Amino acid sequence: KELVLALYDYQEKSPREVTMKKGDILTLLNSTNKDWWKVEVADRQGFVPAAYVKKL
């Protein structure tokens, strides 16, 4: 499975999103959308801005 690194803190703004902290390592589930990537963090799945994460 592919992992991404959170480059910035992100606070979810809708139930479809997830909160992450800078430095978090997240499991990447889907990166087909260039703006929003689906990730899993702490047993929750949701979207984060693609610009806020980097593939490892």
Rank of each mutant, 00 (worst) to 15 (best):
E17G: 11
A51V: 10
I25P: 01
Q11K: 14
A6M: 02
K34F: 08
K38S: 08
Y10P: 02
T27H: 10
K54W: 10
E2M: 10
L26K: 00
V39T: 01
Q45N: 11
V18Y: 04
E2K: 10
E12S: 14
A6I: 03
K54N: 07
K13Q: 15
M20L: 09
W36Q: 03
V53Q: 00
A51D: 09
A6N: 01
K55P: 12
E2D: 13
P15D: 11
A51Q: 12
L3G: 04
P15I: 10
K38I: 15
T19R: 06
V18L: 14
D35C: 13
R16G: 14
K38W: 15
T32R: 10
K38N: 07
P15H: 10
G23A: 03
E12H: 09
E12F: 06
L26I: 08
Y10L: 02
Y10W: 12
K54G: 08
P49A: 02
T27M: 13
K21R: 12
Y8F: 13
A51P: 10
E2P: 11
V4Y: 07
T27P: 15
N33K: 07
W37E: 01
V18P: 01
E17K: 05
V18R: 01
A50L: 02
K13T: 12
V53A: 04
T27L: 13
M20A: 02
V53N: 01
L26D: 00
R16L: 14
L5M: 14
S14K: 08
A6H: 01
R16V: 12
V39H: 00
K22Y: 05
A42Y: 14
V39Q: 00
I25T: 06
K55M: 12
I25R: 06
M20P: 00
K21W: 11
L28I: 05
S31P: 06
E40W: 08
W36E: 04
N30G: 08
L3I: 09
R44V: 07
W37I: 05
Y8C: 13
V41S: 15
K55I: 14
V48A: 03
K13F: 05
L56F: 11
E40S: 11
T32Y: 10
E40G: 10
R16I: 12
D24T: 08
K34M: 12
L7V: 07
W37D: 01
S14G: 13
K54R: 14
G23W: 06
E40Y: 06
Y10R: 03
V53G: 01
F47N: 04
E12Q: 14
K21A: 09
D9C: 05
D43G: 15
V48H: 01
Y10D: 01
V18Q: 03
V53H: 01
S14T: 12
E17R: 05
W36Y: 08
S14R: 09
K54C: 14
D43P: 11
F47Q: 04
G23T: 02
D9H: 06
K21L: 08
A6R: 01
K54T: 14
K1M: 12
L56V: 13
G23H: 05
F47L: 10
Y8L: 10
T27Q: 12
F47K: 02
A50G: 05
A42M: 14
A51C: 11
E17D: 06
V41H: 15
L7P: 00
V18T: 07
D24R: 03
K34L: 11
S31E: 15
A42Q: 13
L5Y: 11
V4H: 04
T27G: 09
D9K: 03
W37H: 03
N30V: 08
V39C: 05
Q45S: 12
L26N: 01
K1P: 13
K34N: 12
D35P: 03
L29C: 07
V18D: 00
D35F: 15
E2T: 15
K21E: 07
N30C: 12
L56Q: 06
A6G: 03
R44K: 11
E40P: 00
R16S: 14
K21H: 10
L5A: 06
D9Q: 04
A6L: 02
N33E: 12
L3S: 08
K38P: 01
L29Q: 04
A51K: 15
K55W: 08
V48Q: 00
S14H: 11
T32D: 15
K1S: 09
T27E: 13
L29W: 06
V41P: 01
V53M: 06
K13W: 04
L28E: 00
L26Q: 01
P15E: 13
D35H: 14
Y52P: 01
K13Y: 05
Q11A: 12
P49E: 02
G46C: 03
L26S: 02
E12Y: 05
R44H: 07
L56K: 04
V41A: 15
A50E: 04
N30D: 15
F47W: 15
G46V: 05
N33G: 11
Y10S: 01
M20G: 00
V53P: 01
T32M: 10
K1C: 12
A42R: 14
Y52A: 11
S14Q: 08
N30P: 03
Q11E: 13
V18K: 01
D9W: 04
M20I: 14
W36D: 01
L5F: 09
Y10K: 00
Q11N: 13
P15G: 10
V41F: 13
K21M: 10
A6W: 02
E40K: 10
N33S: 11
K55F: 09
K54D: 08
V39I: 08
D43T: 10
A42V: 11
L5D: 01
K21S: 10
S31H: 08
N30A: 09
L28Q: 00
Q11S: 12
T27F: 13
V48Y: 00
L26F: 07
K38M: 15
V39W: 01
N33M: 09
K54E: 14
L28A: 02
K55T: 08
D35S: 12
G46Y: 05
D24H: 05
A51L: 12
K34S: 13
W36N: 02
G46E: 02
D43H: 12
E40N: 06
T19P: 07
W37N: 02
E2Q: 13
A51Y: 09
Y10T: 00
N33Q: 10
P49Q: 02
G46S: 02
Y10I: 01
L3E: 07
D43K: 09
K13I: 07
L56S: 04
K1R: 14
F47C: 10
D43V: 06
F47I: 07
N33A: 10
I25C: 06
G46L: 05
Y8D: 08
R16M: 13
Y52W: 07
D24V: 05
Y8M: 14
K21N: 08
A50T: 06
V41L: 15
P15N: 11
D9L: 02
Y52I: 07
D9V: 03
W37P: 01
K38L: 15
K1E: 09
K22L: 06
K34H: 12
D35G: 09
K22G: 06
R16K: 13
V41N: 15
D43Q: 10
Y8V: 11
P15T: 10
K55Y: 09
I25V: 12
Y10G: 00
G46M: 05
K54P: 02
D35E: 14
K21I: 09
N30E: 15
E40D: 07
V41T: 15
A6K: 00
K55N: 08
V53S: 01
K22M: 09
W37L: 05
D24L: 05
A51F: 09
A6S: 05
E2Y: 11
E12C: 11
N30Q: 11
F47E: 04
L7K: 06
E2L: 11
R16E: 12
V39N: 00
A6Q: 02
I25E: 04
L28M: 03
E17S: 06
M20H: 00
I25S: 03
K34W: 08
L5E: 13
F47G: 02
F47D: 05
W37S: 02
D24C: 06
Q45Y: 08
Y52Q: 05
N33L: 09
K38T: 08
L26P: 01
L56M: 10
L56E: 04
L26H: 04
G46W: 04
E12T: 08
